[in-house]
Structures are given as structure tokens and as C-alpha cells.
Amino acid sequence: MEIREVFARNLKAARRAKGLSQEELAHRAGLDRTYISSLERSLYNASIDVVDRLASALETEASDLLKRRPEKK
């Protein structure tokens, strides 16, 4: 799995765990909702600054959004 896909999966999971909509996360991070949607679908690459903004908005570490986890079989 490519890092962009890892990030997309972790971003979506973290957002859902916080009970946030894409729109609310976008608002907290100062981004557009459609950009969040595109990130979660692995359509765009996020800059390191965007990863940091999203991590802050989710009250987590940027490294958590980039961490590879074992895939479920």
C-alpha cells in the first residue's frame, strides 16, 4: 500500500473516531471540504504542512496519520 493510501485510510479513521464530518474537519483545519474528500479517496497528495494542520485539528500526531498498520485479511 502506498503512503498516500495509508494516509487516506488513517485520516478517515481518525476523523470518524472523533465524530467529525468532512466539513467540520475542513473548518477546523482551514481547508476546503472537497479537499478533505479528495485526500480520503487518495486523489491528492498532502503536503507536510497539510498533514500537520489535519493532525492538529484531529488532536493527534502527524506521525499517527502516516503510520502503516497491518492490513486486515
Results as ranks from 00 to 15, higher is better:
Met1Leu: 11
Met1Asn: 09
Glu2Met: 09
Glu2Asn: 14
Ile3Ser: 08
Ile3Asn: 06
Ile3Leu: 15
Ile3Gln: 14
Arg4Ser: 11
Glu5Val: 01
Val6Gln: 04
Val6Thr: 14
Phe7Ile: 12
Phe7Gly: 02
Phe7Pro: 05
Ala8Met: 06
Ala8Arg: 01
Ala8Asp: 08
Ala8Asn: 01
Ala8Gln: 06
Arg9Trp: 09
Arg9Gln: 13
Arg9Gly: 01
Asn10Thr: 03
Asn10Leu: 06
Leu11Gly: 03
Leu11Asn: 04
Lys12Gln: 09
Lys12Leu: 09
Lys12Gly: 01
Arg15Leu: 05
Arg16Met: 11
Arg16Thr: 02
Arg16Pro: 00
Ala17Lys: 12
Gly19Thr: 05
Gly19Phe: 03
Leu20Tyr: 10
Leu20Ala: 03
Ser21Met: 05
Ser21Cys: 04
Ser21Asn: 03
Gln22Ala: 06
Gln22Tyr: 01
Gln22Lys: 05
Glu23Met: 05
Glu24Pro: 00
Glu24Leu: 12
Leu25Pro: 08
Leu25Ser: 03
Ala26Cys: 07
Ala26Arg: 03
Ala26Phe: 07
His27Asn: 07
His27Val: 10
His27Cys: 09
Arg28Glu: 06
Arg28Cys: 06
Arg28Asp: 08
Arg28Ala: 08
Leu31Arg: 09
Leu31Gly: 05
Asp32Phe: 10
Asp32Asn: 12
Asp32Leu: 12
Arg33Thr: 10
Arg33Ala: 10
Thr34Ser: 13
Tyr35Ala: 05
Ile36Thr: 01
Ile36Leu: 02
Ile36His: 04
Ile36Lys: 05
Ser37Tyr: 07
Leu39Tyr: 04
Leu39Gly: 01
Leu39Trp: 06
Glu40Asn: 03
Glu40Asp: 06
Glu40Ile: 00
Arg41His: 13
Arg41Pro: 00
Leu43Cys: 02
Leu43Ser: 05
Tyr44Ala: 05
Tyr44Ser: 09
Asn45Val: 07
Asn45Ile: 07
Ala46Tyr: 04
Ala46Cys: 07
Ala46Thr: 00
Ser47Gln: 08
Ile48Leu: 15
Ile48Gln: 10
Ile48His: 08
Ile48Val: 14
Ile48Tyr: 11
Asp49Glu: 13
Val50Gln: 09
Arg53Thr: 01
Arg53Tyr: 09
Arg53Glu: 11
Arg53Asn: 13
Leu54Met: 13
Leu54Gly: 08
Leu54His: 05
Ser56Lys: 11
Ser56Trp: 02
Ala57Phe: 05
Leu58Ile: 09
Leu58Asp: 04
Glu59Val: 08
Ala62Arg: 08
Ala62Pro: 15
Ala62Ser: 15
Ala62Asp: 12
Ala62Gly: 12
Ser63Asp: 14
Ser63Gly: 00
Asp64Lys: 11
Asp64Trp: 05
Asp64Gly: 00
Leu65Ala: 07
Leu65Val: 09
Lys67Gly: 01
Lys67Trp: 02
Arg68Leu: 14
Arg68Glu: 13
Arg69Ile: 12
Arg69Pro: 00
Pro70Tyr: 09
Pro70Glu: 13
Glu71Gly: 00
Glu71His: 11
Glu71Ser: 14
Glu71Val: 15
Lys72Ala: 15
Lys73Ile: 15
